[in-house]
Design a protein around this nucleic acid. Structure first.
Lengths: 106, 106
DNA sequence: TGAGATATGTCTGGAAAAGGACATATTGTA
DNA sequence: TACAATATGTCCTTTTCCAGACATATCTCA
């Protein structure tokens, strides 16, 4: 039962806090959309539709959480994202909130 | 900036994982709906509408995460909820997922 | 006695989100 | 050469969610 709970909870976190998971991935290593999709799908066993991902990445860049550089791979273009200081602050704050969630028996 | 981030993140967690926050509250101390509403609103500085809370409590009981006993307070009735073993397992699994999130297992 | 707090419940219209389709181009492989 | 994978983007319809309203009853305090 605990295993199915775990899968359910992970999926809920991915769905509702997808931007944060993306920031965490990119902080660990700069990445482009297609790669992020594959990482999320294999790491968390959740379907991630590119029709949701690419607009999200663009808005995260517009809001200053991510920055991108175009990278040519032959004739194919990759938009490689790196995390900004603002983005780092956001996930650090997230980690702090989680710590409180675990510690407090509230 | 980090402060406004914190408020935003807390509100997102409450909104999307409200059931878990309720289970955590009730595990700490058996409680009824109105009290839960007040606790959540003061502890997390988030508005919690009773029109969302009461149906959620009823469904958590139906699914076996909570149990309730009616308590008479004069002519006024309180529905006091306690957490079940299933409910405890759910929030323990949640805590484990959060630990992995913090420990940067990605 | 009237207002505000306590206490629990349902329901609905509009907004937000999700799912899937439409669109295009390159690269690798069978 | 055709199909699957890589790579990024938009758009529309359906579904889900939520805020606020509707509903009822008791208790406390001024």
């Amino acid at each position: 039962m605990t295993e199915s709970f775990k899968k359910e909870i992970v999926q809920r976190i991915i769905r509702n806090l997808l931007d944060i998971q993306i920031l965490r991935l990119i902080r660990a290593q700069p990445m482009w959309g297609y790669r992020i999709k594959k990482e999320v799908e294999t790491n968390f066993d959740v379907r991630l539709r590119h029709g949701a991902l690419y607009p999200l990445l663009n808005s995260l860049e517009t809001e200053g959480f991510l920055a991108s550089q175009k990278q040519q791979q032959g004739g194919r273009t990759r938009k490689v994202y790196t995390i900004t200081n603002k983005g780092k602050q956001y996930i650090e704050t997230y980690a702090n909130v989680l710590k409180e969630q675990i510690q407090n028996k509230t």
